[in-house]
C-alpha cells in the first residue's frame, strides 16, 4: 500500500481522473443552480431553504476541488473535501433508496431522463471515495504545480 501511495504515476492518473470528473460535472450545476437545487430537494432530507444555498456553493466547491486535485495544489484539503462530499452524497442516495424514492441522481448531470438512482450509484460513489481517500493519503508531490513552482524558482535564481 505504501508503495502504491508513493507511486507518482498512479497518483497522477487518479488526480487526472478525479480532477476532470469533478470539473466536468460541476459545470452543468454551476450554469443551472435552480435545477441542482431541485435535485437536492427531491431527496427530501433537508429543510426547504437549504437546497438552494447548497446549490449555490457546492458546484463551485466541486470545481475548485477538481482544479486543485488536477494541478496538485491544496491536494490534501481538496481530496478531504471530495471524500467528505462523496460520503454525504452516498448516504443521501442510500437513504433515498431505502425509503423507495424514485428520483434521478442529480450527480453528474441534471438531465432528469439520465436515469434513476440505484445501488449501482452507491457502488460508483464508493469507488470514488476510495480514490479520493487514496489521494488524501498519497505521499508524492510529483507532477504537481507546487513541486513545479518550488523547483523552478530556486533553479532560475541559481542559474543567474
Amino acid at each position: 500500500m505504501k508503495t502504491l501511495l508513493n507511486n507518482p504515476h498512479l497518483v497522477l492518473l487518479v488526480r487526472l481522473f478525479i480532477g476532470l470528473l469533478f470539473i466536468v460535472s460541476s459545470l452543468e450545476k454551476i450554469v443551472d443552480p435552480a435545477a441542482f437545487a431541485q435535485s437536492i430537494a427531491s431527496y427530501k432530507l433537508l429543510p426547504t431553504w437549504l437546497p438552494v444555498i447548497l446549490a449555490t456553493v457546492l458546484p463551485w466547491l466541486e470545481l475548485l476541488c477538481g482544479f486543485s486535485v488536477l494541478f496538485g495544489a491544496f491536494t490534501h484539503g481538496s481530496s478531504f473535501l471530495l471524500s467528505a462530499m462523496l460520503l454525504v452524497f452516498t448516504v443521501a442516495v442510500i437513504a433515498a433508496l431505502v425509503r423507495g424514492l424514485d428520483i434521478s441522481c442529480g450527480c453528474f448531470t441534471q438531465d432528469p431522463t439520465a436515469g434513476k438512482i440505484g445501488w449501482m450509484k452507491v457502488l460508483q460513489n464508493t469507488t470514488l471515495i476510495v480514490l479520493t481517500l487514496f489521494l488524501y493519503f498519497s505521499n508524492t508531490e510529483s507532477f504537481t504545480l507546487l513541486r513545479y513552482l518550488r523547483e523552478s524558482t530556486p533553479l532560475n535564481e541559481q542559474s543567474r
Partner: peptide, 24 residues
C-alpha cells in the same frame, strides 16, 4: 486548506448567482 477552498467556493457561488440572477 478545506476551509480556504470552502470560503472561496462560497464567495464565487454567491457572486456568480447574484451576478447572473440565477438560483438563490
Amino acid at each position: 486548506e478545506a476551509g480556504i477552498l470552502l470560503l472561496v467556493a462560497a464567495a464565487l457561488g454567491f457572486i456568480y448567482t447574484a451576478a447572473t440572477e440565477k438560483g438563490l
